[in-house]
Amino acid sequence: MTHPPLLPFQTVYGAPQPLDWLCLAPHPDDAEIGAGGTLIRLAQAGRAVGILELSRGERGTQGTPQIRVQECARAAVLMGLSWRGNLGLKDGELADTPAGAHALAAALRAVRPRVLVVPHHRDRHPDHFGTYHLARRAVHLAQLRRADLDGEPHRISRTLLYQGNADIQPGLLVDVGGVQAQWEAAVRAHASQFTGEAVSETVTPEIIERRRARQSYWGTLARVRYAEAFEAEDALLVDPLAL
């Protein structure tokens, strides 16, 4: 009798399935803060969208892993996600390690995203730039037929980098003005982080005000009210007739 392979992650919401877009988040709430409006827009357009947290945020000053997983599930409903999971790596130690890369590569094979969204490598937080480098190795492993991994090989079509705690030079801006209410509700679903005393520039009740100011700046460049910013790992092919 054969048994299905053990999945390397915990499912927080939905069911593992082929995804159009997958956002990697070092900690719970990072995806909402950096790319939430774009993910909501995609979900509203009928795309299969997911988030994979790499850690449970267990070393954070506020909240507990149990509380934070509940917050992630609530946010997933508000965003219209198809799936949300957690890889269970150690908070504060996210880095390009063979074990972490194999676990993430196996997860990529399980949910088979077409587009992968990851934190920017210039982010000042070690877990954020560690996630970027870990993702690069995992993307490579996931496509290798002879890699020691369960599941069929899978090749990511496009990797985009989202803004965390540092400035970026975006090559792609997404209009998120029409989903501000949903985005704010999804961020506020992480109540353990964004109520009470401010702990850092991101763990603060002022998170919506601060992040919306960034969205307003990027929106000004794109001639819209609010936008989210991304960098592409590879050159984007643009139809000149669409410009």
Rank of each mutant, 00 (worst) to 15 (best):
47 R>Y: 14
112 R>P: 00
9 F>H: 10
229 A>I: 11
42 L>D: 00
147 A>C: 11
128 H>Q: 09
75 A>V: 00
241 L>M: 14
127 D>M: 10
160 L>C: 02
82 S>K: 08
75 A>M: 01
26 P>D: 03
142 A>M: 08
168 I>M: 13
195 T>E: 14
6 L>S: 12
97 T>G: 07
141 L>F: 06
72 C>V: 13
108 L>E: 04
237 L>C: 11
243 L>S: 11
41 R>V: 02
63 G>T: 10
74 R>S: 12
220 T>Q: 15
182 Q>N: 07
143 Q>G: 13
181 A>Q: 14
26 P>V: 09
84 R>Q: 15
73 A>S: 14
223 R>K: 14
32 E>H: 07
181 A>G: 07
65 P>I: 10
108 L>F: 02
207 I>M: 02
112 R>H: 07
36 G>F: 00
71 E>W: 01
143 Q>E: 15
215 Q>T: 12
2 T>V: 14
161 L>A: 03
234 D>S: 07
232 A>D: 06
80 G>Q: 05
145 R>I: 12
187 V>H: 04
5 P>N: 13
161 L>H: 09
207 I>E: 03
199 V>A: 08
196 G>I: 02
145 R>E: 15
144 L>Y: 03
93 E>F: 08
80 G>R: 04
126 P>D: 11
223 R>C: 12
144 L>Q: 15
98 P>V: 14
112 R>D: 01
218 W>I: 07
30 D>R: 01
66 Q>H: 09
202 T>Q: 06
96 D>I: 04
209 E>L: 06
43 A>L: 04
162 Y>F: 15
26 P>L: 06
70 Q>H: 10
172 L>Q: 08
127 D>R: 08
70 Q>D: 11
